[in-house]
């Protein structure tokens, strides 16, 4: 309980730092532009669907999550952090605080998008169940992206590790039809080897992409509830795994905060 209070104090402190820097204006501006361009009702006959809302909002919020988390990692990677790290809050608490603030900002953004669309352009068949069905995997994806970006920041991982993980993500994300197949003959030896590697390294990130699809379409809830639950479970498991790896790496590395 005492540790939770320490982490919460640190979270409040970074939140106040975030407000002071004025960078929330960037996010607020982006939200206003996004809402004006994509969420407003263009004409009387146009009707927004929940799938369209989640399709656009998921991309916007996840991109904003990357921006916010990068900024939080920057706030944590300053010499001021030494004095905080010297406290019994510890390295884990330090990282959790940064994660929480970035996550909460994205969550607020998602809620604001929901409120705006409900007021100005209410989607067809829009109710709390539909919103919850799409929002739950999206919130888990937000947490996952926050944890991943924090993990890949220079605060947590060394240069070599970051490049290695980024290479794995790039390989896993390669499309089977475009760059990959145009560059390597899928039936050639190299193509087959790379395809196998891509399949293997792509498995850990599957819950992230499946969660995105579930948030947008919500089909799995109706066609196969077990599959939907498996996706949510997979997202939670991946979140725990990424967080654990982040804690492990941050606990064991030399901390040299940026100048």
């Amino acid at each position: 309980m005492a540790k939770l209070r320490q982490i919460w104090a640190w979270t409040r402190f970074i939140w106040s730092e975030y407000q002071r820097t004025g960078r929330f204006l960037v996010e607020l501006g982006a939200l206003i532009i996004f809402a004006y361009v994509f969420l407003r009702k263009p004409n009387v006959d146009a009707h927004l669907t929940a799938t369209q809302f989640f399709g656009m909002t998921a991309i916007f919020v996840l991109c904003q999550t990357i921006f916010t988390t990068t900024m939080m990692a920057g706030l944590g990677n300053r010499p001021q952090g030494y004095v905080v790290l010297a406290r019994s809050l510890g390295r884990k608490g330090y990282l959790v605080g940064l994660f929480l603030v970035a996550f909460l900002i994205s969550l607020v953004n998602l809620i604001l998008c929901t409120i705006i669309v409900t007021i100005i352009n209410k989607p067809v068949l829009w109710d709390a169940v539909i919103w919850g069905a799409g929002a739950l995997p999206l919130i888990l994806d937000i947490a996952l992206v926050t944890a991943l970006v924090l993990l890949l920041s220079s605060l947590v991982l060394s240069q070599g590790w970051r490049l290695s993980i980024l290479a794995v993500i790039a390989l896993a994300s390669l499309s089977t039809s475009d760059i990959f197949t145009n560059t390597f003959d899928p039936n050639g030896s190299l193509g087959k080897i790379l395809a196998a590697i891509r399949t293997i390294v792509g498995i850990p990130l599957t819950p992230l992409f499946a969660g995105f699809e579930l948030a947008v379409t919500r089909q799995a809830y109706e066609s196969n509830l077990n599959q939907a639950l498996a996706i949510l479970g997979g997202q939670a498991a991946l979140l725990i795994a990424v967080s654990a790896f982040g804690f492990f790496a941050f606990e064991r590395r030399d901390i040299i905060l940026g100048a």
């Binding site: 209070r5 320490q6 001021q80 809050l89 608490g93």
Partner: peptide, 28 residues
Amino acid sequence: IGYLPERLRYHTHCSAREYLTYMGNFAG
């Protein structure tokens, strides 16, 4: 262990009292 870092780099948006209160909170 009490630690005074080399450079004068603190979170200067706070007052000294606020800063010390936060630092105390971080220490439980």
